[in-house]
Design a protein around this nucleic acid. Sequence first.
DNA 1: ATTAGCACTCTCATAGGGAGAGTGCTAACA
DNA 2: TGTTAGCACTCTCCCTATGAGAGTGCTAAT
Lengths: 337, 337
Amino acid sequence: MLTQRRADILNLVVDEYIGTAAPVSSRALVDRHNLDVSTATVRNELAALEQEGYITHPYTSAGRIPSNTGYRFYVEELMAEEPIGADERRTIEHQFYQVAPGLDEWLQLAASVLAAAVGNVAVVARPQRPVPHLRQAQLVHLRPGAALLVGVLDDGSIQERIVAVPEDEGQPELLARASRLNDRLSLSDSERIRTIAPQFEDDDDRRLTLEIADLVAEGASAAQLFIEGIRAALAQPEFSTTDRMLDAVEHLEAYELRGALRPPHSPDPGARVLIGDENERSWLHDWTMVISAFGEPGGAVGSVAVLGPTRMHYGHTIPRVRYFARLMTDLLHELDG
Amino acid sequence: MLTQRRADILNLVVDEYIGTAAPVSSRALVDRHNLDVSTATVRNELAALEQEGYITHPYTSAGRIPSNTGYRFYVEELMAEEPIGADERRTIEHQFYQVAPGLDEWLQLAASVLAAAVGNVAVVARPQRPVPHLRQAQLVHLRPGAALLVGVLDDGSIQERIVAVPEDEGQPELLARASRLNDRLSLSDSERIRTIAPQFEDDDDRRLTLEIADLVAEGASAAQLFIEGIRAALAQPEFSTTDRMLDAVEHLEAYELRGALRPPHSPDPGARVLIGDENERSWLHDWTMVISAFGEPGGAVGSVAVLGPTRMHYGHTIPRVRYFARLMTDLLHELDG
DNA sequence: ATTAGCACTCTCATAGGGAGAGTGCTAACA
DNA sequence: TGTTAGCACTCTCCCTATGAGAGTGCTAAT
C-alpha cells in the first residue's frame, strides 16, 4: 500500500498530467502546489512510484506520466469528483425541454450535450429489452401482392420489412388480417410468436406470423447509436499525428462502437471505467471508456458512454456520465407517463 | 480556345497530378508520355496554359498543378471515362442480392460499396417525395392517455411521435379511431390533411388529425443520409496535416452534408460535378462533389454523391456515381414490384 | 529521512548548408 | 516562326550540428 505522501504525490502527478498533457516534473509539483519538501525528495518519491508501477517516463530525463495502473488507483482512491453545479444542471435540463419530446430526439441531444460537457466522444445507445415483445403489428398495402409490415415493439422501437400478401387483398383485408394477428400475438416475444404460428388456420397468417417473429427478433440485435464529439476528441494532443487520427476515425463509427459497448442488461447506478487495456477491443487500448446504463431494471436498458484518451479528466467525466444516465432514466419515465 | 497541343498537355498534366498528387514538371510529361517535343517547348506551353488560368504553380520552380478552371475544362472536354467492366458490375450487383431486400439495407450498402469503389466519401440520401402523402396511420396504446402515433408515408418512410389520447381508450378504441382517421386522411398530403381536420366531429379526432399533418410534414424535411468512406478520403495527401483533417471531420457529418446536397426533385440521368468553389458551402471550396439523383420522376427521389479533394479521379468517379444512381433506381423499382 | 549540488541525458528549436528539382530566359537553330 | 539547348536562378527538402533547456539520478552532507 502507498504511504500517504506517495498517494498525494501520485494524485498531483495525475491531476497535473491531465491538465497539461505534458510529462510532470518534480519542480512543477513543488512549485505549483507549494509542497514543503524539496524537489529531490519528490524525485525520490517519484522513483518509488515508478518502481511500483504507477507512473513511467517516456525517456530518461523527462517528467513522469501516469501508467494505466496509476490511473486505476487514481480513479479508485484519489480522484476528487467535480460536482455538477445547479447552473450546469439547469442549462442541460433546459435543453431537453426545448426539443420535441421524443425518444430519438432526446437520445441525440444527450449525446451531443454530453460530448460538449466532457470534450470527448459521447455515445448513447437506444434502450432495448433483452427480449423485446410485440406491441402491435400493422400491414400497409403497397401494391397487389406486397405490403409493408410494421411492428411496434415494447421498447418503443419500430421495425419494418416488405412482405408478400395475397394478390387480391387490399388495405381493408390487410387491416382485418393485422387485427386478427394482433389479437393473438400482441405482447408476446419472438419465440412465443413462433410457437403460436401453427395455430393459425390460414397459410398466409402462418407465414406472416413467422415474419413477425423475425421482425421482433431483429429488434433485439443492433441498438441504434448516437455518436457525438469526435472532432473534440481528435483535437487532443494524443492525436497529434495524422496516422493516429486516421486510426481513431476508422474505429469511431457505429459498427465498431456497438461491439465495444456490449449492452448492459440492467441499469447501473454508477459508472464503469475501463482504462486502456481493460477494454476488450485492442483498438481501445489507448482509450478510456466511462460507461453507464439507464432505463428500468427488467425493462428497456440503454447506455451512455464517454470515450477519450486515457489521459481524461476523470473527476469531471465520471459524475457527468452518471448524471446523464440518471437524466435519461428520468426522461424515459416521463415518456412512459 | 486551346490549341490541340495545349489541350493534350493540359490533359496530361491533370492525369499526372491526379495520379501522383505532386506538381507535374515538363520533364515528367516528356519522359512518361514520350512526347516528340523537348521539355523547353512543353515549358512554353505550360507557361501559356498558366497564363490562361488552367494551371498554377505553388512556387516559382515547382511543377504545375491544375486550377479549378483546369479541372472544369478537363471534366468537360478532356477526361477519358473509365468504363465499369462486366466483372466489376457483377461484383457490385452481387452484393445487393446478398443482403435482405430492404430499402435501408440497400442504401447503406450502396454508400459503402461506392465509397470503396472510388476511395472517397460516398453519401446516399434516402429517397423522398417533395410532398409526401400519408399511406396509413396507426395508434399504438402505450398507457392510459398516451399512444404512439405511427405514420407510414408514400415514400416508404415511417414517422412516429407520442400523442395524447383519451384516458379511457384502450387499444380497441384506438384501432377504431385510427381506421376512422385513415378512411378520410389516407393518400393526402400534409396540407390537405390539415384542411380536413375541421370536418371531424370529435375533438380528439381533430387534434390527432393535426398531429398527423405535422407528422407527414416532417417526412418532407431531413432525409436520412448514409455516409461511408471518410477514412479513405482523409488518408489522401490533401489532409496531411491534422488541422485539415480536423476541419474535414468537423464537416463530414449528416447535419452538414444534408445542407450541401440539397435535394434534387427529379432524378438526373447524368451526374453533376461541382468543383471547388462551385460548391455553395465555403467549407467545400477545396472539395469536389459528384452528385446524381435516383428514383422516379414525380416520385420519391434520392441522391448519390461522392465527395473528395478537387484532385479526384474524375474519369473513374463520375461513371461510377452515374452507375450507382441507375442501380438504385432499378432497385427501387424492384421494391415497388 | 531530507536535501543541495552536480553531472549527465534527452528533447527541441534553430540555423546552415548542400543536393536536387524545375523553371524562365536567352540565344541559336531549322 | 516555332523549337530547342543551355544555363543561371530559385525554392524545397533533408541532413547535420549545435546550443539551450528541462529534468533526472546519484552522491554526499545535513
